[in-house]
Amino acid sequence: MTESETEIIMGERGISTFEAFRATLKRDLLVAFKGRNELLNPLMFFFIVVSLFPIGITPDREVLTEIAVGVLWVSALLASLLSLDNLYRSDYEDGSLELLLLSPHSLYFMTLAKILSHWLVSGLPLVLLSPLLGYMLALPTEAYWTMIVTLLLGTPILSLLGSIGVALTVSLGSRGLILAMIILPMSVPILIAGTLAVGSVMDGNPVGGHIAIMGAMLAVAASLAPLASAAALRISVN
């Protein structure tokens, strides 16, 4: 790590927490955009997994309409899981994570910045791609907006929850499977809320309540998950 990078993380004496938050966010985005090919990987993974379902189950449009939301959500979950693997990984390996832990600013905001940048580079593109995949899965037109809104609310929750699991396992050599075992069961409520919302719009029912619950979930996750994530980082990095 170069000196300037260190400076970005550590900051000079006396910068505010907000500035440190912005610096961490900016630094993480810069690092992410430096490896452009890796940036595409979660997106392509999402695309590939979704396209396996019609082949594996049936190309029948009626069946696809029925399962479309579930397929999109499960694929988004898997894509987020795989991309999360690198949330703290490279920082742990090059030692910048330790610097982050040493910084005088609240670790809560630092982890929040890292999670936000992770969501911006891997979650948001997935949401933007979802209408295309929805079309390929014969999702009914009236369900598009609900699907986009729920994914927009749900994918950050996946990143937030997942960050706890990643922080707990960051020091392990091979941890792909154990990470999946920790994160996937925890994501069930989001999966349920997301599919229910789209299902209810397809049945012609009001959807506001579902979206409100997802918003509440996001609020709770955003306030508590970075705390747990920060505590887990302190445990993993001695």
Partner: peptide, 26 residues
């Protein structure tokens, strides 16, 4: 499933001090 994930996290972490606190948080 969640109980299994706690058990496997403990067995994956070698250092018992780290494992204790990680499993506690999980």
């Amino acid at each position: 499933f969640l109980l299994i994930s706690v058990i496997s996290l403990r067995s994956a972490l070698n250092d018992s001090e780290t494992a204790a606190r990680a499993c506690a948080l999980l």
